[in-house]
């Protein structure tokens, strides 16, 4: 365990909590993709299947349970909460899950560390996490709506991915047998997609700055 890894996990948790608390406080989920949230829950569930038999540390187990619980709560708010679900932008959030799930499943069957059910589901979750933000990016591009909620959420998610890369570099330098190509390549793809989001975020920020200038 190193400082980059701990920072990354805390940032990841913060990103989810920021989203959850803002939905709770404002009773609105405008601009948030339910598809992305459901894909993240699928990522957590398929990756943390080992929760019941593979005890690594209390730290890991607590984070796994908290990630699953908090992302379930976000989905509950968006689908079931009477006020919040009315603010969900259903008409623009039309990305098809299967376009992501099928390629990730096929890739996990072909490129994996070991051909076993648990290993393939774990690998699937790594691939799926890399692309799960795509429905959110598509929704953003369609609505051109980058408000504080989506901005802060994706900013924290991007920081979380950046700290995981630092963690891998640190571990590669300090642990003799540390190597994880599947995770590294997927992580790089994922971080690249967040950079795309940052680009739109900065553009929207610049435009709103320009609009405030006196003409």
């Amino acid at each position: 365990m190193n400082i980059f890894r701990v920072s990354a996990d805390i940032l990841h948790l913060l990103s989810i909590l920021v989203l959850l608390l803002k939905i709770h406080a404002t009773k609105s989920c405008a601009g948030i993709s339910l598809k992305t949230q459901e894909l993240y829950l699928a990522v957590f569930v398929t990756r943390y299947l080992d929760l019941f038999w593979n005890f690594h540390s209390l730290y890991n187990s607590v984070f796994k349970v908290v990630y699953i619980a908090t992302s379930s709560m976000i989905i509950w708010y968006m689908k079931r909460h009477r006020g919040v679900k009315q603010t969900y932008d259903k008409d623009h959030d039309t990305f098809r899950y299967l376009f992501l799930i099928v390629p990730c499943a096929v890739l996990a069957l072909i490129v994996n560390g070991r051909f076993s059910l648990f290993e393939i589901l774990w690998t699937f979750s790594i691939y799926l996490e890399a692309v799960a933000i795509l429905p959110q990016l598509v929704l953003l591009q369609r609505t051109k709506n980058v408000d504080n909620l989506t901005g802060n959420y994706v900013f924290l998610l991007g920081l979380y991915r950046a700290f995981y890369i630092l963690n891998w570099i640190y571990r590669y330098a300090t642990e003799p047998h540390y190597s994880a190509w599947i995770v590294w390549l997927s992580g790089l793809v994922q971080t690249g997609l967040y950079l795309d989001f940052f680009y739109y975020y900065l553009q929207a920020w610049k435009q709103s700055k320009k609009l405030q200038l006196p003409s």
Partner: peptide
């Protein structure tokens, strides 16, 4: 304990 290193990450 024979799990690969990347499995101890979240």
């Amino acid at each position: 304990a024979a799990e690969p290193a990347e499995k101890d990450e979240l």
